[in-house]
């Protein structure tokens, strides 16, 4: 039972990670609290769903979600954040919330307010391993999350782009001294981070088999709590925090029966982190 809950938690945590890592990456580059990231997620869910309905291929759906998510993220960066860089962060935060509201509402106006589902029976199979049941949709989420996170790991740790990202997120001056084109980097960061938010939208949509305009509400703010726990611009901090909070949430409902709403747990945990470890959980096992 406990193991089952942990597997369920890891599934949720993996999806959180796809959203939160992109958010941490964007924060590292622009120091913007990118609430509209969850708008990318909603758009990704719809694009993925419709691509799937047309092509019946989940892989194509995933690619479409990532591509459109990417485009959408880049557009937000170019038309909203770039003109606001010189102002205080509160201005871009509000603009970001505006983009998020307009995106969800735009989606609602185009696709209607009702919950849309994937065709029945596509991921209904169940696998029994030991005493644990893994549904096919869960397996899909796990496989795609692992693939995506491996891709993020490769790009951020093994490529020049990843190095540049780290340089900029740690120190703008240092980035300048190694002659990184910051505009190009911002573009790439948004394109890259948004692709995974788009994918996360599709994965959540298929996992819970429901795609609806307001589906971004909870991830929008929960992912903020997650990056605080992870240390704001720390991508791997965001990863571990996502996994941790995913499991914590599932356990709190399934095992501990905590009376508070599940979605406020991330924030409560965040408050604890702020009180005792304001630099994020990665400070707990710092290497250097």
């Amino acid at each position: 039972m406990l193991l089952q809950q942990i597997i369920n938690g890891l599934t949720i945590g993996g999806i959180y990670a796809l959203i939160a890592m992109g958010l941490a990456l964007v924060y590292g580059i622009l120091r913007i609290i990118h609430v509209a990231h969850a708008g990318v997620y909603v758009v990704g869910a719809y694009i993925g769903l419709y691509t799937f309905l047309i092509t019946h291929s989940f892989v194509l759906a995933a690619l479409a979600s990532m591509a459109v998510g990417s485009l959408f993220g880049v557009a937000v960066q170019k038309f909203v954040y770039l003109p606001l860089l010189k102002h205080s962060p509160i201005i871009s935060l509000i603009a970001s919330i505006g983009v998020f509201i307009a995106t969800q509402e735009g989606v609602r106006l185009i696709f209607g307010p009702y919950i849309k589902s994937f065709p029945s029976g596509i991921f209904d199979a169940q696998y029994h391993i030991g005493g644990i049941i893994i549904t096919q949709s869960q397996l899909v989420v796990l496989v795609f999350s692992v693939l995506a996170i491996s891709a993020i790991w490769f790009v951020t740790e093994k490529t020049k782009f990843g190095l540049a990202l780290k340089a900029v997120s740690q120190d703008m001056d240092m980035a300048e001294s190694v002659a990184i084109d910051s505009k190009k980097l911002m573009f790439l960061a948004f394109a890259f981070g948004s692709a995974f938010a788009g994918l996360a939208g599709l994965l959540v949509g298929s996992y819970f088999n429901s795609v609806y305009p307001a589906m971004g509400d909870v991830p929008a703010y929960k992912s903020l709590a997650i990056i605080v726990v992870g240390g704001m611009s720390n991508i791997w901090g965001a990863f571990w925090a996502s996994i941790f909070i995913g499991v914590l949430e599932t356990l709190s409902i399934g095992v501990f029966n905590i009376p508070l709403p599940r979605d406020s747990l991330a924030f409560i945990f965040m408050v604890f982190v702020l009180m005792f470890k304001p630099e994020g959980i990665m400070g707990l096992f710092k290497r250097n």
């Binding site: 924060y27 120091r31 609290i33 205080s88 962060p89 509160i90 935060l93 703010y221 903020l224 709590a225 990056i227 605080v228 704001m232 924030f267 409560i268 965040m270 408050v271 702020l274 304001p278």
Partner: peptide
């Protein structure tokens, strides 16, 4: 600043 924004959302 940025932490405060998120903290107040949490509150």
């Amino acid at each position: 600043e940025d932490f405060l924004a998120i903290t107040t959302i949490g509150i």
